[in-house]
Design a binder for these strands. Structure first.
Lengths: 186, 186
DNA sequence: TAAGTTAGTAGACGCTTGTTTACTCGTCAA
DNA sequence: TTGACGAGTAAACAAGCGTCTACTAACTTA
């Protein structure tokens, strides 16, 4: 590459961050190498460590980019099962899962970032969900629902987005709503 | 090590297999190195490939060791929710999860063995569970229940075996039974 | 006892990983 | 025009990985 390149610190930083977000979501933390991120971002590999410090810190910044678990949790308690069901139903077929959610599931076994993952699941899903539940054992009920959400991601990862035997959207939502009600009800 | 060692092909093979089962369950496929397996088995590293061909084939053999998803599925349909709930409740606190189950969850993101994991989940959980369900959408209902099982494993991996806010066993089983009923009921 | 088979060993092989160093050169203030 | 700053680059670094080869030595068979 003999061409001269623009000097654009902020732009390069953003390209790296975008590439990292895509790749971490698609492949998980330890299946993504610095060289692949650099190539995808069309940047030099040394710039990743220059701008972010390390791969781990880059991953932390990717996690920090995204907000809470998509607006699903911003509803009154009695609507939560239905909203969560719709969210899962959407993710069952659609090709793109939530990047952060995907990164979490695909990276949960990497010890280097275990604390980042755990804190993120806590602050983005478990705690806000638990806080919305009234009655006893709110934390435990939220934990079961969270297990269902992450488990759905794992199944999707194993079997791909389009499982042959998923019934129509109506039935899926009805079923999942009932399941979340069983998780979350007082 | 100047000591002479016993020549015991079957014994060495079994030591390697046992060490691999433990380590894969505790750490997942790609966090376990051949050298660590060899050390844990007190065997030479070259013997692993001699006896099993490759790391992947060793993992396949570890998966093949174990039978179906622990007897839980050998009950009539109407007992399944309760049995599954008891199984999960047990695994919530106890220190040792099912080795194969743990290995599955901790390794599900490794592309090298993706097909092994998927086939194993299918044959050990998804298909036998689905086969026991009557009525429409059996495969989908089984899939939700499987997501709950694997998701529970993921949560356990993130937060450890002893989560502070787990209610007493009675309440846990009651709650989980209701959730599995919502998953599996016709 | 001599020859052949094979379990076990030590060490290197080629490769990939995250990270770092030494350098080039575009940009802008003095 | 000159000099300093810093974005961008190429190459190397040490460490780790799965795998393989050449060898030793224990057991079996003739």
């Amino acid at each position: 590459m003999d061409e001269t390149r623009q000097r654009d610190r902020e732009g390069t930083r953003r390209r790296i961050l975008d590439a990292a977000r895509r790749l971490f979501a698609d492949l998980g933390y330890d299946q993504v190498t610095m060289r692949v991120i650099a190539a995808e971002a069309d940047a030099n590999i040394a710039l990743i460590n220059r701008y972010f410090g390390s791969k781990r810190e880059l991953f932390a910044e990717v996690l920090a980019m995204q907000g809470r678990f998509p607006g699903v949790l911003d509803f009154p308690e009695e609507e939560l099962p239905r909203r969560l069901a719709e969210y899962i139903a959407e993710r069952l077929r659609s090709d793109q899962a939530s990047p952060v959610m995907a990164a979490l599931i695909r990276s949960s076994n990497c010890p280097e970032i275990h604390d980042l993952i755990r804190d993120r699941v806590s602050s983005a899903i478990l705690e806000p969900l638990s806080a919305r539940l009234s009655g006893p054992d709110a934390a435990f009920r939220a934990r079961i629902a969270t297990a269902l959400i992450t488990g759905n991601g794992t199944m999707r990862q194993l079997y791909g987005p389009e499982s042959s035997d998923v019934p129509d959207r109506e039935a899926v939502i009805a079923r999942l709503t009932a399941v979340f009600e069983a998780c979350l009800s007082q």
